[in-house]
Design a binder for these strands. Structure first.
Lengths: 180, 180
DNA sequence: CCCTATATAGTTCGGATCGAACGGTGCGGA
DNA sequence: TCCGCACCGTTCGATCCGAACTATATAGGG
């Protein structure tokens, strides 16, 4: 049991199982791919190790098939549900962490005019994907899913505005060949 | 020399040195803290190891004080500058990666009304910081710095709009006690 | 009924990343 | 002189990450 030391990844596992019921790591993997990826990416191998770890902490219970693939199915324990509820009810003042290669290039001196078209295309495609998913939620999706997706859509729109602005700008002031 | 295998972190190092001239890892650390953190965070220990690695690849040259702190100062080699220029001139279609604890809580069922005030406060403070830095750039900051910061400001505004919307909403539909 | 192709499911392993913690160095002031 | 703090640099173990691989199930063709 010891000191739990739960990370965000732990709560993704606990939280998804809470929403969909008993699941295998593989189920979680597929689910994470379409839902969570937007604001928290987890490599799939970690879902396997994380489930095992949480089972060791008695936050999940594990049942394993005796034959064939010997799949492990996990479900929430009472302790697990408590830990999740506790975490969910605490607000956080933590800010987002972002890693964006294109902005980095811009920062280090990349040419806006050259970067913008590619980024615009990528972000427009992403926005379209999100909107499609959003459209497929009728009333059945949990509130949290809708809200998180709305946040993602907002951000894609912000990126599109940003890169559009750069694309639409004449080569910008005399731009003295800085640095060196 | 071998196969360089450069990561984004590598280019941050090369790029910052290109902009400010010869520097120690400690210089880079302080600089990164105030400039890059917005769209790419690098833990400071990695700056030390990364500089050493790049020197091994002949992309940086290293000179070390013979006495006292024995600081290592790095400067760009010709090869380093070429590698940097090559990377900067390639557009990328990669999208941002985000990790945002608050959105995660929302997604997993956290109460919007409860999360919003804390997030609003945090994002407002962050926006203010950015705007202050932006104000301190008169005309002297490189174009990339201004643009990257503008992107950061756009995103903070998006977050503020988003959380404001949630804060300002009556406890939302009957919100059937979903899940379980 | 067997063979192959494809989707599903799970694991291994080495390298990259991370950050807490620690150990020196230099300087200003008592 | 020597104390204390800010500055500077590094070590180390833990975690994270993902490419690559193995194994299982199933469906369709012959």
């Amino acid at each position: 049991m010891s000191s739990p030391r739960l990370t965000e990844t732990s709560y993704i596992v606990l939280g998804l199982i809470a929403q969909i019921g008993p699941a295998t790591p593989y189920d979680l993997k597929r689910l994470a791919q379409v839902s969570t990826v937007n604001f928290w990416s987890v490599p799939h191998t970690q879902l396997y190790s994380e489930c095992a770890r949480l089972a060791g902490e008695d936050l999940l219970s594990e049942r394993r098939e005796q034959t064939g693939r010997r799949r492990r199915t996990y479900r929430l324990t009472e302790r697990g549900r408590e830990a999740l509820e506790r975490w969910l009810s605490e607000p956080t003042s933590e800010l987002e962490q972002v890693r964006d290669t294109a902005t980095l290039k811009l920062f280090l001196g990349g040419d806006p005019q050259q970067l913008a078209p590619t980024q615009l295309q990528a972000h427009r495609a992403q926005l379209e994907t999100y909107e499609q998913i959003y459209g497929s939620f009728v009333g059945d999706a949990p509130q949290g899913w809708r809200l998180a997706l709305e946040a993602g859509i907002d951000h894609e729109r912000a990126y599109i505005r940003f890169w559009s602005r750069l694309a639409g700008q004449r080569a910008r002031e005399g731009s003295p060949a800085r640095s060196r």
